[in-house]
């Protein structure tokens, strides 16, 4: 009998509350700007938070309120931003699509190991333990902190190195923030010639820890006809504005650290 009472009471209370809430939802209905819904459709929809707002809903609301720029959502892509521009009646200034690139080639066998790491599977933890499991202090640790943060399934780990699929990457920047070594960078998608190394040590020290490390020899700089390569701190860097993607630098690089995608 008591069980019956309990069930009935809870059921009736639930019904009453449900009824009151349904009534309240109708009675206190607030008109939402229809543009918020439309903009939400154009966004990446992963609630990645890269825009700095709490989620896609909050960002859409902020765009309508004029607080957020219409191109604030990187995962929306150029098309999405264009659509948002149309909804808001603004001209979207769409830059070139960016992709995240891993600036390290130190896979197993290429980069030397400092020690065998058998701890918690996190790059941030491993990086803090005696300088990390790989001898190079600029290397990819390969335990997948970036992979965990990627909402778009674009990162795979292979031989202790992160690989990013440019087709899936939306340049949200979550992996860039997650990497404790800061070796992931956002580069324009057309920039097919990439220096895949961040080692700024001297040539001898760099070569001692990794077969594919940039030693800052400057052969690429001499070869480049467009003055697009800068060698500083023992590391080559490509000026994307000047680079014509001719690929001559990659051909002469003795360390094979300049690659053509």
């Amino acid at each position: 009998m008591i069980i019956l009472y309990a069930g009935l009471l809870l059921g009736i209370l639930g019904l009453i509350f449900g009824g009151v809430l349904t009534f309240a939802a109708k009675k206190f209905h607030v008109e939402v700007d229809e543009r918020v819904e439309q903009i939400k459709e154009c966004l990446g929809g992963a609630n990645c938070g890269a825009c700095g707002y709490a989620g896609c809903d909050a960002f859409a609301q902020a765009v309508v309120d004029g607080k957020a720029p219409i191109d604030g959502c990187a995962p929306a892509g150029a098309k999405g931003i264009e659509k948002i521009g149309k909804i808001m009646g603004m001209e979207a200034n769409v830059g070139e699509r960016m992709v995240a690139r891993v600036l390290c080639q130190g896979a197993k066998g290429v980069a030397l190991d400092r020690y065998e790491y058998d701890g918690y599977k996190s790059c941030a933890v491993a990086a803090g333990l005696a300088g990390g499991p790989k001898a190079c202090r600029f290397s990819c640790i390969g335990l997948g902190d970036c992979q965990d943060k990627c909402k778009f399934d674009a990162i795979t780990m292979k031989d202790g190195l992160a690989h990013i699929d440019p087709a899936k990457c939306t340049a949200c920047g979550a992996c860039v923030k997650a990497c404790p070594r800061s070796i992931i960078s956002l580069l324009p998608v057309s920039q097919s010639v990439i220096v895949r190394c961040r080692n700024t040590d001297t040539a001898r020290a760099a070569r001692a820890v990794c077969m594919d490390a940039c030693i800052g020899c400057g052969r690429c700089k001499k070869q480049c006809q467009y003055d697009a390569i800068i060698v500083e701190n023992g590391l080559a860097r490509i000026d994307h504005e000047k680079c014509t993607r001719c690929g001559e630098c990659a051909a002469v690089c003795p360390c094979k650290c300049i690659v053509i995608e």
């Binding site: 809870l10 809430l21 206190f28």
Partner: peptide, 25 residues
């Protein structure tokens, strides 16, 4: 009704419904 053992679940129900209502209001 002599069903004081139901208090926790009944309270949760009340609180959840109440907060929803207050939010809408």
């Amino acid at each position: 009704l002599g069903i004081t053992f139901m208090s926790t679940i009944a309270f949760i129900l009340v609180i959840a419904a109440l907060v929803q209502f207050v939010e809408m209001f």
